[in-house]
Nucleic acid binder design. Structure first.
Lengths: 200, 200
DNA sequence: TCGTATCTTTGCGTGGCTCGCAAATTTGTG
DNA sequence: CACAAATTTGCGAGCCACGCAAAGATACGA
């Protein structure tokens, strides 16, 4: 990767991160594209060369992370059963980043994230990112299972189910009544869908 | 329902339908909010009292129909097994409307729908509507299974899985390689997830 | 039937947003 | 170092969402 591409990637991440940071701190509607661009050290116009909206910039981080699940799945050993491989892939790339890095773990921060997650424009973009990443996952599932993503339902059903499990875990964690560690919720959710959703 | 509410409902539907019609005919970016309002016989400003964007107006029809699945599920007999009830509910309110009403069945129309379905803004709003309707379904599933939508993953996993099946069927129908009747795809998809996604 | 309270529609104005375009700057390469 | 290619930036056009307040429609009790 040449200097050019590296700088582009850096700018993209800086913009996305700035968008998240400012939005969590101030609320979606109190952040102008101008502010995000300034925070990342580029011009307003450059922001729009990278993202076509505030919401897309915010969702980009989720997207990048979610797409990596598909990559990880491809690198799991061939012998590993499908659902085991998926679970491992999800945890390898998803669960960890949710807890550790880049989070002040602040109470104010979490409140900000909750607010952000409820904003209509963010929801739409978040779901778009989630769904796009799911397609990458479906392609990986198709490869692994010898099915065809353009003709068969199966890989999309698997990917969609995994996505639903991840979303359910995120939503219950953010908005549910019973506080539980995210990792536990996610493991539970994946376990249930992997087992074919037995009646509880 | 008084006259007031009936007129509101009519306006809402007229706006949503006008948005879909014009968008399918001309393409998303060649339709102004002004045009939609004119087609429905109200002012531009009134459009925004009902919907906060073009995309939302378009997705409203999907949303209304999808929410009815939850209502239908509630009215299924108590003894019916969950997945059977869900499948029947989906077909009662969803599959039929997809084929019959309000569709010129025109080739030009279908091409327009395909184009529309690929537009980024539409995708976001469509997924938002889909997800919101899914929550209604989760609530109905919680009622039926004695689980709690605020605390348990289960109803959200079931609703999310059903939603994923519906989405997969729609997408394969619209964009897939192998042409098959929508109803068949949907039945296949629901059958697979109901059976716990056995390896094909 | 009428009068009033409530809800809905509408026009206007404001601020923000996305994107096309072309000039200026930066990076890659021989 | 010079030239080609990609990226950034400023500017401008057109559209959009929403707050506000006036005008219009509907509900409902007396």
């Amino acid at each position: 990767m040449g200097l050019r591409e590296r700088k582009k990637e850096e700018t993209r991440i800086a913009l996305s991160w700035a968008a998240i940071k400012l939005t969590v701190e101030r609320g979606f509607d109190n952040v102008k594209v101008e502010d995000i661009a300034a925070e990342a050290g580029v011009s307003h116009r450059t922001f729009n060369n990278y993202f076509s909206s505030k919401g897309e910039a915010i969702a980009a981080r989720h997207f990048d992370r979610a797409v990596q699940i598909a990559d990880e799945l491809r690198s799991r050993p061939d012998g590993e059963p499908l659902w085991e491989a998926i679970t491992n892939a999800v945890f390898a790339r998803f669960a960890l980043g949710m807890q550790e890095a880049e989070r002040p773990a602040d109470e104010r921060w979490i409140a900000g994230v909750k607010l952000m997650s409820q904003h209509p424009e963010h929801q739409g973009e978040f779901l778009k990112a989630h769904t796009a990443a799911q397609e990458a996952l479906a392609a990986a599932v198709a490869e692994r299972t010898g099915t065809n993503a353009d003709r068969d339902l199966y890989p999309h059903l698997v990917a969609g189910t995994v996505g639903a499990a991840i979303l359910a875990a995120i939503n219950l964690w953010l908005h549910g009544d019973a506080p539980a560690p995210f990792e536990e919720l996610l493991r539970d959710a994946l376990g249930q869908v992997a087992a074919g959703l037995p009646t509880p």
